[in-house]
Design a protein around this nucleic acid. Sequence first.
DNA 1: CCGTGTCAAGAGCAGCGCTCTCGTCTGCGA
DNA 2: TCGCAGACGAGAGCGCTGCTCTTGACACGG
Lengths: 229, 229
Amino acid sequence: MVQTARERAREALTADIVETARGQLAEVGAAALSLRAVARELGLASSAVYRYVPSRDDLLTRLLVAGYASLGAAAEDADDPGLAPRGRWVAVSRGVRAWALAHPHEWALLYGSPVPGYAAPQDTVVAAMRSAGVFGRVLGDAARSGGLVGRTPDADRTPLVGPDVGPVLGGEHPALDDDVRARAVLAWSSTLGLVSAELFGHLVGVTTDQDAFFTEQVGRLADLVGLMG
Amino acid sequence: MVQTARERAREALTADIVETARGQLAEVGAAALSLRAVARELGLASSAVYRYVPSRDDLLTRLLVAGYASLGAAAEDADDPGLAPRGRWVAVSRGVRAWALAHPHEWALLYGSPVPGYAAPQDTVVAAMRSAGVFGRVLGDAARSGGLVGRTPDADRTPLVGPDVGPVLGGEHPALDDDVRARAVLAWSSTLGLVSAELFGHLVGVTTDQDAFFTEQVGRLADLVGLMG
DNA sequence: CCGTGTCAAGAGCAGCGCTCTCGTCTGCGA
DNA sequence: TCGCAGACGAGAGCGCTGCTCTTGACACGG
């Protein structure tokens, strides 16, 4: 895999563009992200940027994938396999919130209103699964170690969670029935809601201590899933 | 309160502008909402619109307030005081989701990423309380009718929910302690997360039946709050 | 009936995404 | 080593945006 000097320069400049765009994103948000401003910051003509990035939407896609990867890495770092299942879940949740507070505009890009007229390519949905996978591993490990309270599943109920979430949500285990997975999806969606509500200002005046409030609430969600510890 | 012909014409045209903007919002979304397009649709010069609406941000504020009012009305319509508390909570939640599915761009405006550089005025936060107040009434009625399972509150724990949420979240009642209110806030945030996740495409491939999935999940949330029925 | 104030319209400014053209320069194959 | 295809950056330009300023017409109240 040998590269010519041109190819190396091209990749380096493309990376510079994406990195500058991330800086712009952090400053002014996704909606105000301007290709011309990125070009100005790099000392390029606006038209030159189009040699490396085909469109503004494509640049957004790159930022989206990078954002999911960054969030997923933060979730993985926050995970501590030595903790009890409930504590692990809370720790990962806190890691997600901490990342969101540190990168509010990126969180808004990932989980806020989708950009109109922009359809997320398949690359982004696989990238999005990385953070969910961390919760899934906590769930799977808990099931295997007996740290998940059992329920009596209703066998005759049609499953409401698709079969594709099995691999990402804890793998195969008899204790991970449809009910547990549905609760896990609820807990993940609720965490999204908690973080977004806090970040988008829907909790101002509601909570007295945002950090303690969040920790207590994700603890309740872990209980809802059935994690012990 | 007598009005001159001029004043009446002014109010009518202002209402026309907001209504046309709502149509634009439903078509292209908030980020692509254009004052010039609104003016074109009304057969006005773009500059004339500024006589009635001081800025694009102000127009967004009007749409925000109108959206909260519309959502609040939908929640009130979905409420059926004859039902048991748990059923009421689920019905209101379903009403909220139905409104969101019918007005996806408005939902995104209300609960999605905030518009960068735009600070929501106080008018919007009081308008936002209307839908939350419906859940609060369900909670309060349940407490007064004994349809709320009691808990043993930890008196020595510092409350994590601010004192201002008392009036909107069920009023005063001994059964509505800090723990119950915190669970209600969690349930409301979780509902926001569920609806947003569905609307913004984060549940594609996860659920098999979106409607049944949502109903089951908000039922779990009602159980979490402690509503009976 | 005439001054005052409101009205819509148009031009214009700066910025945006994106396209096209035009010289320049690089690097690969002959 | 030379020549040429292809990549490169710069610039002009199109149509769009939010917003401002000026201009001329109109309605209303004293």
